[in-house]
C-alpha cells in the first residue's frame, strides 16, 4: 500500500491517456487519474477483467447486483457508448463529465433527453413517459391509480409537447427544462467536484507519477 506509481501498474483494457481525457472533459488530469482509481475498484467488483459490467454497475448503485431498475439500465446503456455490454474507462470518464457541476447545461439537457427517449426514436413519446412513471411507482411505495397516472402524463404532455404532435422532441424538451430547471437535478453530481479528495490514496500515488512526468 502507499506510494506505488500508477504508471508502473498494469492498466485495464480500454485505458486512455488521462491528458487526452482531461482535454475533452470537465476534469483535470489529476481528477481523471482519481477516476481511474475508482474505475478499477468498480471494474473488479465481480468479473475481474478491468471493465465495468452491468452487474458491477448495479452492485455499486444498489449494493445488489441483481436489482433491476429501468433507469439504471438506461444510464448504463448511455455510458456504454460502444454498445459492447461494458463501460470502458474512456466511456466512464466522458459520461461522468456530463454530471460534473461545471459541465455545460446543454450537455446535461441532451443527456437527460436521451435517458427518457427509451426506444431511441429521437422523441419522448407518451407511452414511454407512462412506462417510466409506472416503473418508478413499482420501485417505490407511491401508489397512484391508473386514472391519476393518466392525468399526470396528459398534463405533462400538455405542457411539454408544445407542437401538439403527441411526442416531445429535443427542442420542446429544452424549452420545458428551461421552465422546470428541477428536471436537471439528477444531472449534477457534487462528488465530482472533489473526486481527488474522495480518493486520498490516489493523491500519494499521483505525486510519484507527476514527478516522473
Amino acid at each position: 500500500m502507499g506510494c506505488i506509481s500508477t504508471k508502473h501498474t498494469k492498466q485495464t483494457p480500454g485505458y486512455e491517456d488521462p491528458k487526452v481525457l482531461a482535454s475533452e472533459t470537465a476534469f483535470t488530469v489529476s481528477e481523471v487519474e482519481a477516476l481511474y482509481e475508482l474505475y478499477k475498484k468498480l471494474s473488479f467488483l465481480i468479473i475481474k477483467d478491468g471493465l465495468i459490467h452491468k452487474e458491477e454497475f448495479q452492485l455499486a448503485l444498489f449494493r445488489n447486483s441483481e436489482k433491476q431498475n429501468l433507469f439504471a439500465d438506461r444510464v448504463f446503456d448511455l455510458f456504454d457508448v460502444k454498445h459492447n455490454g461494458v463501460i470502458e474507462f474512456g466511456e466512464f470518464v466522458r459520461s461522468l463529465s456530463i454530471f460534473h457541476p461545471d459541465a455545460p447545461e446543454e450537455d446535461k439537457i441532451a443527456f437527460a433527453f436521451r435517458l427518457y427517449d427509451l426506444r431511441q426514436t429521437g422523441y419522448i413519446e407518451r407511452e414511454e413517459l407512462k412506462e417510466m412513471v409506472m416503473a418508478l411507482l413499482n420501485e417505490s411505495d407511491l401508489r397512484l391509480s391508473d386514472e391519476v397516472v393518466e392525468q399526470i402524463v396528459d398534463k405533462t404532455f400538455g405542457q411539454a409537447d408544445s407542437k401538439g404532435d403527441g411526442r416531445i422532441d429535443l427542442d420542446e424538451w429544452k424549452e420545458f427544462v428551461k421552465k422546470n430547471p428541477s428536471l436537471l437535478r439528477n444531472m449534477t453530481l457534487p462528488y465530482l467536484k472533489d473526486i481527488t479528495m474522495a480518493f486520498p490514496s490516489f493523491v500519494m500515488k499521483s505525486e510519484v507519477s507527476d514527478e516522473d512526468m
Binding site: F62, N69, V133, S140, T156, L183
Partner: peptide
C-alpha cells in the same frame, strides 16, 4: 394534481449515481 411526470420519474434510485463513489 400539480405533479409533473418527469419530477416523479426523477425520484428513481436508478438516477442516484452517488453509490458509485461510496467505499467499496
Amino acid at each position: 394534481t400539480n405533479l409533473n411526470a418527469f419530477d416523479i420519474i426523477s425520484l428513481s434510485a436508478g438516477f442516484d449515481l452517488s453509490g458509485l463513489f461510496e467505499e467499496k
